[in-house]
Computed example of a mutant assay.
Amino acid sequence: MTTPDEDLPLAGTVVLLRPAADGFQVLLLRRPSRGSFADAWVFPGGKVEQGDRQPGAAEVDDARRAAARETAEEVGLTARDLVPLSEWRPPAEAPVRIRTWFFLALAPDAEPSPSADEVVELAWVSPAEALARHASGEWRLFPPTWLTLHRLSTFADVDAALASGGAVELFQTQVLDEGRAFGWAQGTLHAHTLPWRFDPV
């Protein structure tokens, strides 16, 4: 029996942004070759744990605390002033179903120090460069990461990107065409061949 989306476990992830000569960059990390995101490039983050929960707090605040804690644990950076960007709900077919809140934050000046257990390598790249590496087959991305990068690639600088947060978008994922495409109210991601293509509604 499928668990209702509202009862699914929660997670939080942080899209760290820093200014760059050609606009801005985001921090992405490659997971080890095990687990649900084996060898994938993702933003730092992870599941909400008991210590992240506060009585009476909204779930977005629990997810924010988890996102900040996981970012500190995984890449050694303190993420502050996390702006909610989106909530991603997994398809019914997913073997592991977790609702994930995405947040935007300005990266601190400190250099990241990756956790050896959770991070194989780190990269500061523009959203366009990350998408290009995926399109060439060099990087593996999952649809929420790909679409977040795709949407961020339209902004010219950090301030514009950060301003896009605050009004949370809900992405209720549907698997289409036997797994070769993914659909949301916002549009359809065609993922059967590289490069992927997003058709907005």
Rank of each mutant, 00 (worst) to 15 (best):
Gly45Ser: 09
Lys47Ile: 14
Leu28Ile: 06
Val42Ser: 04
Gly45Tyr: 13
Val42Thr: 11
Ala21Gly: 14
Pro44Asn: 10
Arg31Trp: 15
Pro32Tyr: 04
Phe24Glu: 01
Gly46Leu: 04
Gly46Ile: 00
Leu29Gln: 08
Ala20Met: 00
Arg31Asn: 06
Leu27Met: 09
Ala21His: 14
Ala38Phe: 07
Leu27Pro: 01
Leu28Thr: 00
Arg30Phe: 15
Gly23Ile: 10
Val48Phe: 02
Glu49Arg: 06
Ser36Lys: 05
Gln25Asn: 03
Leu27Val: 07
Gln25Ala: 05
Val26Asp: 05
Asp39Thr: 15
Asp22Trp: 15
Phe24Gln: 04
Asp39Met: 09
Arg31Thr: 10
Gly35Asn: 11
Gly23Phe: 01
Ser36Gly: 06
Gln25Leu: 08
Leu29Ile: 15
Ala20Cys: 05
Ala38Thr: 09
Phe43Asn: 03
Asp39Gly: 15
Phe43Pro: 02
Trp41Val: 02
Asp22Leu: 12
Lys47Asp: 05
Phe37Glu: 15
Asp22Phe: 15
Leu27Trp: 01
Ser33Val: 14
Leu28Asp: 08
Arg34Asn: 04
Gly35Phe: 04
Asp39His: 10
Phe43Val: 06
Val48Gly: 09
Ala20Leu: 04
Gly35Gln: 13
Ala38Ile: 12
Glu49Phe: 07
Arg31Val: 11
Leu27Gly: 01
Lys47Tyr: 11
Gly35Glu: 06
Gly35Tyr: 12
Glu49Thr: 07
Ala20Gly: 03
Leu28Lys: 01
Leu29Tyr: 05
Ala38Gln: 13
Leu28Met: 05
Pro44Gln: 08
Val48Pro: 02
Gly23Thr: 06
Ser33Arg: 13
Ala21Gln: 14
Asp22Lys: 13
Phe37Leu: 09
Leu27Glu: 00
Phe37Arg: 12
Pro44Ser: 10
Arg30Thr: 15
Arg34Val: 13
Pro32Lys: 14
Val26Ala: 01
Phe24Arg: 05
Arg30Asp: 11
Ala21Met: 14
Gln25Ser: 06
Phe37Cys: 11
Phe37Tyr: 13
Gly45Cys: 04
Phe24Tyr: 12
Ala20His: 05
Gly23Asn: 03
Gln25Lys: 02
Leu27Lys: 08
Ser36Asp: 05
Asp39Tyr: 15
Asp22Ile: 09
Gly45Gln: 02
Phe43Met: 04
Val48Met: 06
Lys47Arg: 13
Trp41Ile: 02
Arg31Lys: 08
Val42Gln: 06
Pro44Ile: 02
Gln25Ile: 08
Arg30Ala: 07
Phe43Glu: 02
Arg30Val: 09
Gly45Val: 11
Trp41Met: 02
Trp41Asp: 00
Trp41Ser: 03
Arg34Gln: 03
Pro44Met: 04
Gly23Pro: 07
Leu27Arg: 03
Pro44Trp: 10
Pro44Arg: 01
Pro44Phe: 05
Gln25Val: 05
